[in-house]
């Protein structure tokens, strides 16, 4: 699951804030209607007045320009021939050659499918679990016990992916815990990490282990905002705890659920690249290889930069489309929007 993020800043609702310091609303109105000389003069005034504030923006803006926007522009090599060592924007236009190349690449469609399956499994299994855990925690009356469960279940979130991968290798290894249990009940040890048919199970379980506890935080926060009088009123009406959960608690946290769902759909295509990279091996490629790992091998290990960039661009565009459409749908259906 993705980290819950604050997206309020992108709100276009605050679009009025283009005015200058002291001129107030009237000046804003003028600036908006007459886009002639006035705004220019007022920019100079603004700069003279606020130059120190603007100077604070300089370094971060340079950073964003170089390390965020330059690579975005660098995607142009998906349509240009690129030679390592020459311009990072490529040498000459080749049109859609690399796009055609990957569309006709059977291997690409295989990893595309794997990506969709892992993403869908994550959405179906990993996404609802924090909600359930938060609801269970909400029913705990002993504060010390609740706090204990929270403290312990947050812990995996702080572990490096490398550590998590190391633990997965140990627990699923031939002499690891899972196989100890299997042999204890009379089964044969399975070499889980080398078996393509087990990869998805292992990947999803490690995701559950690492993210579910931490994922409860926003739901628990949302639960505290539900008006307690609703519960009292429903109790007088004879609703039991289950009915209260269904009719009060769940609707109460619905905006949080929708927001996190939208965010999760937005990161759907970017399924844990680093984790897959650590956990997979050529034997498990048939199920484990996803778009990002494929383009890593094609691009960086085999130096087909343009080809890999075309795939990466395709992936990013799908991601952007997904989050925009998920947001539009959620705004229409439940009135919750990220921005």
């Amino acid at each position: 699951m993705s980290t819950p993020q604050n997206l309020e800043a992108s709100s276009p609702a605050g679009g009025q804030a283009t005015g200058t310091l002291s001129d107030g609303a009237a000046a804003v109105a003028i600036a908006r209607t007459s886009r002639g000389a006035y705004p220019q003069r007022s920019w100079r005034k603004t700069l003279r007045r606020d130059w120190q504030l603007y100077s604070l923006l300089v370094l971060p803006l340079i950073f964003l320009l170089i390390f965020r926007y330059m690579p975005m522009a660098g995607n142009v090599i998906a349509f240009r021939r690129f030679r390592p060592g020459s311009s990072i924007f490529g040498d000459e236009w080749v049109g859609l050659r690399y796009v055609e190349l990957f569309i006709n690449d059977a291997k690409f469609w295989e990893v595309f499918q794997n990506t969709l399956i892992l993403g869908a499994l994550g959405l179906l299994i990993v996404f609802p679990l924090p909600i359930i855990l938060a609801l269970l925690l909400n029913e705990v009356r002993r504060i010390w016990f609740k706090r204990l469960v929270q403290t312990i279940s947050y812990l995996p979130h702080f572990m490096s992916i490398v550590i998590v991968a190391g633990m997965v290798f140990q627990i699923f290894s031939v002499q690891g815990t899972i196989n100890q249990v299997i042999t204890a009940v009379g089964g044969d040890a399975v070499n889980f990490m080398q078996r393509a048919d087990w990869f998805r199970t292992i990947y999803i379980s490690s995701e559950v282990w690492q993210t579910v506890g931490w994922g409860t935080i926003l739901y628990l926060a949302a639960l505290t905002t539900i008006d307690q009088q609703l519960y009292e009123a429903s109790r007088i009406d004879g609703a039991n705890r289950w009915k209260q959960t269904w009719h009060i608690t769940l609707p109460g946290i619905r905006p949080t659920m929708v927001t996190l769902l939208v965010l999760n759909i937005g990161t759907f295509m970017a399924v844990g690249f680093e984790k897959v990279l650590l956990l997979y091996n050529p034997l498990t490629y048939p199920t484990a290889d996803v778009i990002s790992t494929y383009l890593y091998r094609v691009g960086i290990l085999s130096s087909n930069f343009s080809y890999a960039t075309a795939i990466g661009l395709f992936e990013s565009l799908i991601g952007l489309t997904l989050i925009l459409s998920a947001n539009a749908i959620s705004r229409r259906l439940v009135g919750t929007s990220l921005w």
Binding site: Q5, L7, A9, S10, L61, L64, I66, F67, R68, Y69, M70, P71, M72, A73, G74, N75, I77, F82, P84, I88, G266, S292, L295, Y296, G299, I300, F305, A308, T309, G312, L313, E315, S316, G319, L320, I323
Partner: peptide, 19 residues
């Protein structure tokens, strides 16, 4: 917006590597 946009769209692995 300049900052927030980078949350939804990024350059991707290869362009970053090249840079």
């Amino acid at each position: 917006m300049v900052a927030v946009f980078t949350m939804f769209f990024n350059g991707g692995l290869i362009p970053n590597y090249v840079l």
